[in-house]
């Protein structure tokens, strides 16, 4: 068996804010090329967990290691692409074309005194091509639909050539057709390019076939290694703190 070093190694992580426990004693690992979905009730600590992985919040106790290094010693942040909740809600008056936004993905890697290099421009172009937004490149971001904006934000994340893509419910406010395309794209990025995906979502049913593992977060973490198996009603009730009833979803084969 091949020994695998986790990309993220989280040990006994807790986060307490103003006396309220948000996360309690979480330990988990995320490996290369995995597709992981994170679900849980609102306020259950999903976003807090992601923010701690990204170094945006400091844990009250416990440790996060990234590529075997402590967060404070980690420098290769371009390996991580992050798309937050606000992805599809942009300030409509911000003076940015699609190209301006995608280029931001290369900002931290450009040479100190220089403009963007040929390679930077090529990677920006590739990311837009991959997200099918090349024809929108001169359009103002404020004029795009929610689905288009979402693709722009993913393109920005891809422009840095990430090895891991962290998405925090970037599809709120996006129409159903665009969401379907979006899920197909994530599957492709994971399967074809081997990009590790960590995806906070509520639409677990739709991506159950794509994901490798499922983390359910509600103060504590429950790790489900076989997400295709339907979560039992008891588990759902415990997770969300409500009475859950099993819904039968009929799949139509085409």
């Amino acid at each position: 068996m091949k020994f695998r070093v986790p990309i993220f190694d989280i040990k006994n992580l807790s986060f307490v804010l103003k006396g309220q426990t948000i996360l309690s004693n979480i330990s988990l690992e995320i490996f290369c090329s995995e597709y992981i979905a994170i679900i849980g009730p609102n306020g259950g600590g999903k976003t807090t967990l992601i923010r701690m992985l990204l170094g945006l919040e400091k844990p009250t106790s416990g440790e996060v290691k990234i590529y075997g290094k402590k967060l404070s010693n980690f420098k290769e942040w371009h390996k991580i692409g992050y798309v937050g909740q606000r992805a599809s809600h942009v300030d409509a008056s911000f003076p940015a074309t699609v190209l301006d936004i995608v280029k931001m993905g290369r900002t931290s890697q450009r040479s100190m005194f220089g403009a963007f290099s040929e390679l930077d421009n090529q990677l920006v172009n590739d990311a837009m091509l991959k997200m099918d937004i090349l024809d929108l490149k001169d359009k103002m971001i404020g004029t795009l639909s929610g689905g288009q904006r979402q693709r722009v934000m993913i393109a920005r994340a891809l422009a840095s050539k990430p090895e891991i893509l962290i998405l925090d419910e970037p599809n709120t406010g996006v129409d159903v057709a665009s969401q379907k395309k979006f899920y197909a794209l994530l599957r492709e990025l994971n399967k074809k390019e081997g990009i590790t995906i960590v995806f906070i979502t509520h639409d677990i049913g739709v991506i159950a076939d794509d994901i490798a593992r499922l983390f359910t977060i509600n103060q504590k973490a429950v790790i489900c290694n076989n997400p295709k198996q339907t979560l039992s009603c008891e588990e759902m009730s415990e997770l969300y703190g409500i009475d859950a009833h099993l819904l039968h979803v009929h799949k139509h084969e085409h």
Partner: peptide, 22 residues
């Protein structure tokens, strides 16, 4: 001018700029 791209990114999305290593 030297840091205009960084300032622009931070103005657009400070958190994502931070997570990209800026």
């Amino acid at each position: 001018l030297l840091f205009s791209k960084e300032f622009y990114f931070i103005a657009y999305d400070e958190e994502v700029a931070k997570t990209s290593g800026i």
